[in-house]
Design a protein around this nucleic acid. Structure first.
Lengths: 243, 243
DNA sequence: CGGTATTTTCGAGTCAAGCTCAATAAGGGA
DNA sequence: TCCCTTATTGAGCTTGACTCGAAAATACCG
């Protein structure tokens, strides 16, 4: 009696703990062996439960995988937001650099997960979920970019989704390239140059550099008129000179 | 005697024809159902052979898939090279645009294959092959870019692999985004703007226009100081003149 | 042509892995 | 303690990649 009715929470807590155990075991096995290579029996063994029990928590292997991915992407999004929140400067480009460094590092470190996410593109139901993960994650960049436009650091006519494609597309492709050259090649690529190039690219393509050119044009105009003026004065002076 | 020894070629040709039939059937089934969804039995049925026969041509399902991918990527590379060869202009940016249009269209049209390529990243042996496909394919961009540098259209200090990452990374990411918004959203993205933005980006970041602006600035500064100097000399001269 | 060696094809059978389900255990209220 | 609900289990079911012994086709030779 006393030990049994300890708490109504206990039961739920127990289930949740078990669910977390399954998720953690699944995460490890999926990362180690990929989706096809992962064995439900191994996941069950690591979670210290029977194989059939998994199916009372998750409908199928695919759904379990999806839960793992959900957790993974949620974690990424939170971390990315934290990186932005902890930035000590307001400057767009500094923040972009922080985000790029974080993203590139993460994508390289968790390449397995990223690949798994895109490998799971068969059933339409799963696609939508995977899409939501991405949408939520890239929202960090979106708000950063919009803020940069509002603060006048970025061109107003820049198209958000184009910038987003360039940012994430380039970083992911670079991550794959870095990954590829890691084990075999001697010409190992580093993360630093990739991020630097990205910032430089955003500077030259999206910064309000146009204003600078405007200023130059103004300088040019004023110089030109000054020159004309000087020329006239010179002529006038020359005419006043004695032969 | 007469009918049997028709030709020593016949036998080999027969085998090769059968191999092509298997490859073609496999290609269709893989594209329709993905790697896991594809059934060896269906491939055999479509190729009008017994299931076991496939295994006297290919070691395993994975190796068959790899052969399909090999053929696919080789075709892509050839097409990309043909696009470059048939370009009517020499201008780097026009050629880049043609390549971008081709690549984006191809990636969207054959999204299944592209995904399959990256989904097959488990066994190390397969990785290397997949890497070679990519390396060979992107060589088209590489030679185009180098030519652009040689012809003085592109900055000499530009780093090739960085430009390559930007080009292919952005296009692939855009292709995925376009794919995603295709069936559901009303705000459908088009391929045109993506390519245009890419060209514009390469113009602003890699064209020798940077040098021009730099040169302009330097010229402007020196002209400005010379003008001031001249103005002073003129005043001094004017003061020395008799009233 | 007949006979024989070799090569190619075949599909029934094996094995492995995801998944089901009837039986069992655990929990919890009266 | 009894009973009902819920959770857990692993032996089997199903499916699909792959094997293998046999048969069919082909090549070779006298």
């Amino acid at each position: 009696m006393t030990t049994k009715a300890v708490n109504p929470e206990t039961q739920r807590a127990k289930l949740e703990r078990k669910e977390r155990a399954i998720l953690e075991a699944a995460r490890g096995v999926f990362v180690e062996h990929g989706f096809d290579g992962a064995r439900m029996s191994e996941i069950a063994r690591r979670a210290s439960i029977g194989e059939g029990t998994i199916y009372s928590y998750y409908e199928s292997k695919a759904e379990l995988m999806l839960a793992v991915l959900q957790q993974f992407w949620d974690g990424l999004t939170l971390e990315a937001e934290a990186v932005m929140a902890s930035a000590q400067v307001d400057d767009f480009f500094e923040r972009l650099q922080a985000l790029a460094e974080y993203h590139l590092g993460t994508v390289i470190a968790n390449a397995d997960f990223i690949n798994l996410t895109f490998a799971l593109r068969r059933n339409n139901s799963e696609v939508s979920v995977s899409r939501d993960h991405l949408r939520h994650y890239v929202a960090v960049f979106d708000s950063l970019f919009r803020r940069g436009q509002d603060r006048g650091e970025l061109r107003r006519d820049a198209v958000l989704w184009q910038a987003r494609d360039i940012f994430y597309g380039t970083l992911e492709y670079s991550a794959r390239s870095i990954e590829m050259t890691m084990d075999t090649d001697r010409t190992e690529r580093l993360q630093g140059p990739v991020v630097d190039e990205m910032i430089s690219l955003f500077h030259s393509h999206y910064a309000v550099a146009h204003d600078t050119i405007e200023t130059d044009r103004v300088t040019l105009d004023s110089m030109s008129s000054k020159l004309d003026q000087l020329s006239e004065q010179f002529d006038a002076l020359a005419r006043r000179l004695p032969q």
